[in-house]
Amino acid sequence: MRILIIEDNPDIVANLYGFLEPKGYVLDSAANGYGGLGLAAQNDYDAVVLDVMLPGLNGLELCQKLRGELGKSTPVLMLTARDTLEDKVAGFDSGADDYLVKPFSLVELEVRLRALVRRARGAQTASPMLTVGELTFDTANFEARRAGRPLALTRTGFTILRLLMKEAPNVVTREALEQELWGEDRPDSDALRTHIHALRQALDKPHPFAMLRTIPGIGYKLVSEADE
């Protein structure tokens, strides 16, 4: 597994190398945002470990460029010392797939990396075109559109959308979504909520009615018409 580490703290980088390389990971690293963006543009990685507070180009800006300018859907695990819900939403909105607060366990970081890569590889094996009303999702190319307008989503956002579209118009429980996303390695209770928020912003905000509906106490579903 090839991982790009973009982190300006040399102690953290050394710890990651010392922990991951003996396990067979191939690592590249950059100590600033522009250097990390350059490596991401030149190479293909299975995942990116990205610090938020970076010199030159911060992690949020880098992640936006990674998704937008480079068109990369590589899973991104974001590292930060900030743990408020607003900070997590900002990270996910920028294109991150998962979020780990410093100080963190190296074991937990590896577990999350493996989960991100496993989901990404699993998504690549399925290639049908999914359609719900004016919403389409080409799962082979990770291209989702509503009324012809492309949706900018993270890998996790695409995973949630795929499951909701496959089950539509039925309700998908929170437990089913969490199992699909994280298996038994579930993060804190805010994680799914922040991913749903980011998906809702991309899917519904520019349009006249909301396709993504919350079923209180149960889960979520997609509808194709405004009155459903």
Rank of each mutant, 00 (worst) to 15 (best):
Q42A: 14
I218A: 07
Y34A: 05
D44Y: 00
D190L: 03
V49W: 00
R118E: 14
A47F: 00
I160K: 08
V111S: 13
D204T: 12
E184P: 01
Q201G: 11
E175R: 09
N15Q: 10
D98A: 13
R213G: 04
L163I: 13
T84G: 08
P206T: 12
E61G: 06
I218L: 10
D44A: 13
R149P: 01
L85E: 14
D28Q: 07
Q42E: 15
G56L: 06
V223L: 06
M78S: 07
T154W: 07
R2L: 04
R145W: 00
I215W: 02
L106E: 07
M53A: 15
L57K: 07
A30P: 03
A81S: 15
Q42M: 06
A144T: 02
V89W: 05
F137M: 08
A81H: 02
G33I: 00
D87K: 02
D51F: 01
G24K: 09
G59Q: 07
F142M: 07
G183M: 05
M129P: 01
F137Y: 15
A202G: 09
A126L: 09
Q64W: 00
T154P: 01
D8H: 10
S189A: 12
C63W: 03
V172A: 12
A198M: 05
I6V: 15
T74E: 13
R114S: 09
R174K: 14
G59V: 10
L153T: 04
L60S: 11
L116C: 09
C63P: 10
A47Q: 12
D188R: 02
F137S: 02
F137Q: 04
A152S: 11
C63Y: 04
D11F: 05
P128Q: 12
R213Y: 03
T156L: 06
E225M: 03
H207T: 08
I6W: 15
H197I: 10
V223F: 02
L37R: 10
